[in-house]
Design a protein around this nucleic acid. Structure first.
Length: 580
DNA sequence: GTCTCGTTGCTGTA
DNA sequence: TACAGCAACGAGAC
């Protein structure tokens, strides 16, 4: 019996316990993996089942508005990602309906809701994609415990990544490999690589009786309590259909796929981004990474030569698995403290500087334009992420990578726990990458790709009429040029200043009142950062990475004292600098 | 202990 | 556009 017609009625009207009790039912619990293609959990749920309950639980913490957050959205996610998720759910629901099923939306704490469904619906199987994120690890233990005690079979296959991180760690002697190359060896070829994946399903068993569980349609942004909030146009729409369309477009250009080299991409390309922009679809599992990998292998087979990992497109999927593996095998991966892989560094704590970075008013147009793109689109090119992450941490501001990680985690539509933390560890030279003398310039790095500054003009329209000679360093533009460009630096757009020097000369209070005065001179700041990192590295080496809070505090004090020894040099620098 | 190598730096020079 | 020089780290292999 097909129940999808009657499900539009309130759930109470559907109560028919006999129906669920008389057949064998399964719950397909969607969390990530919001797709039909290559979904082994869904496949198993429907096998031999009279009924399948496709469930998604809306967790209010993740979805409902938090007025205290620094951007529109919930406590945990910015509005762009919430919208992307809702679009993905609508698309999934549409696909399920075509197959004779539908998506059942429930609300509440996911563990409690799931256990209630298990009790109410009398199913024999619970199926969901395995997830290595700590949140799901903890949640799944609870749900599995209940299911096991209730005699319900649990099927939780690995299908979010190419490999099972636990397998790689085991093959690597119980420890996660810490370099990409040493990851490739135990990884080898994926076991499923040469056999076809199930990419389509012709039909699904009907949904069973939902009893007294409250089921709703996929809510809109408005339904979630955001009112009639005006949504910025963004070029990425959520959902499996969109993911497969985007994948098809990307791989149809075989030459582009074959020649893809990630580090050569242009971070300032925004009309047509230099990458596939499939990351948000991989994040939510709208696209199977395994299917993507197979599609790439098909292209590689049919071209004479192609690029290889780590720079190739397939190499990008392996990077994803690399970070998943290290993250899974490392306690406290998302923190400096208690994280064995992470250098212990006495980062500064400064809310004003953090806010200037987050709110795109550092005074460096390249940095600020990237942060605007992050806010507006929830996505920016990988190298653009590098620029702003380096600037926040080891390049200029010397602020804690965890603060930047939090901002990315909230605002990115593709924010992924393992990859985001891994990249912040990398960029801050806290782990994986240690060449702290290689610093991205907030001026010349962007200029190299986009000398005219079109990217800046687009995302920072206040600078749209600034001549290209000055657009990366607008504080150097003569007053006449600034007037002509209708952008007075220090009034319409911030100028970068040497914060420690100003603090000494004018007092800290003044700084906090000058909202249009921002951040640092890159030259002096980056030198300071290098000096601090050299000292922190030396102490980490001396103490074998076992730094206590007291060690860090002492080092911080020492670094601050050393900084005070240089005011004369600094003042000299300011006199000869461009700012007057 | 020594050596090689590492997805993605910058500047100056030819 | 390509390369040297800059300053220089750690994981992993041996």
């Amino acid at each position: 019996m097909q129940l999808s017609l009657s499900l539009s009625k309130p759930a109470q009207h559907l109560k028919n316990p006999l129906m669920a009790a008389s057949g064998s039912g399964s719950i397909m619990w969607f969390r990530k993996g919001l797709r039909i293609h290559d979904n082994p959990a869904l496949e198993y749920a429907s096998k031999g089942s009279d009924f399948v309950y496709p469930v998604f639980v809306i967790d209010p913490h993740y979805m409902e508005p938090d007025p205290k957050a620094f951007s529109p959205g919930s406590r945990l996610a910015g509005l762009n990602r919430i919208r992307f998720l809702l679009e993905s759910l609508v698309d999934l629901d549409t696909s399920l309906k075509k197959l004779g099923s539908r998506l059942l939306i429930l609300k509440g704490e996911p563990g409690q809701v799931l256990i209630r469904c298990l009790k109410e619906w009398g199913v024999k199987k619970l199926c969901f994609e395995y997830d290595t994120d700590p949140y799901y690890q903890a949640l799944d233990i609870r749900v599995k415990e209940y299911a096991s005690a209730a005699g319900i079979e649990v099927f939780s296959p690995v299908s979010h990544t190419l490999f099972n991180p636990a397998d790689i760690i085991q093959r690597n002697g119980g420890k996660p490999p810490l370099t990409y190359q040493s990851f490739l060896k135990p990884a080898g070829q994926p076991s499923w690589a040469s056999s076809p994946l199930l990419t389509s399903i012709s039909s699904l068993p009907p949904v069973g009786d939902v009893g007294s569980c409250e089921i709703s349609e996929v809510p809109s942004i408005k339904d979630l309590g955001y009112g009639d909030i005006e949504q910025e146009w963004i070029p990425f729409r959520g959902g499996e259909s969109e993911a497969l369309k985007r994948l098809k477009e990307s791989i149809s250009d075989k030459e582009w796929v074959a020649n893809f080299e990630k580090p050569k991409g242009n971070p300032s390309a925004f009309v047509k981004p230099a990458t596939t922009v499939l990351s948000p679809y991989l994040k939510f599992g709208c696209l199977s990474s395994r299917y993507f990998y197979q599609c790439l292998q098909d292209v590689y087979k049919n071209v004479q030569k192609h690029t290889s990992p780590p720079v190739s497109l397939a190499g990008q999927l392996l990077w994803r698995d690399f970070f998943y593996t290290v993250a899974f095998g490392t306690p406290n991966f998302d923190r400096m403290e208690g994280n064995k892989l992470c250098k212990q560094i006495p980062w500064n704590d400064d809310d004003e500087l953090l806010a200037a970075w987050r709110e795109a008013r550092t005074g460096y147009p390249w940095i600020d334009a990237i942060m605007v793109q992050l806010r507006k689109w929830g996505w920016m090119h990988h190298l653009a992420r590098h620029s702003v992450a380096c600037f926040l941490t080891r390049g200029d501001l010397f602020l804690h990578w965890e603060r930047g990680r939090d901002v990315f985690e909230r605002l990115l539509i593709d924010s992924d726990w393992a990859i985001n933390n891994g990249n912040w560890l990398w960029l801050s030279c806290s782990s994986f990458f240690y060449q702290y003398n290689r610093i991205y310039s907030p001026i010349s790095f962007g200029k190299k790709y986009d000398p005219n500054g079109d990217y800046i003009r687009h995302f920072l329209p206040v600078l749209k009429d600034m001549p290209k000679e000055y657009i990366y360093e607008p504080w150097t533009a003569p007053p006449g040029i600034q007037r002509k460009a209708k952008c007075i630096i220090g009034r319409d757009y911030p100028k970068p200043v040497d914060l420690p020097c100003i603090c000494m000369q004018l007092g800290v209070i003044l700084i906090f009142t000058l909202m249009l005065v921002s951040v640092v001179y890159h030259d002096s700041a980056s030198k300071e950062c290098k000096r601090k990192l050299a000292e922190a590295y030396a102490l980490n080496q001396k103490l074998n990475g076992q730094l206590s809070q007291e060690d860090l505090d002492n080092l911080r004090r020492k670094l601050e004292q050393d900084e005070d020894l240089e005011p004369k040099i600094r003042r000299q620098r300011q006199k000869v600098g461009h700012l007057t």
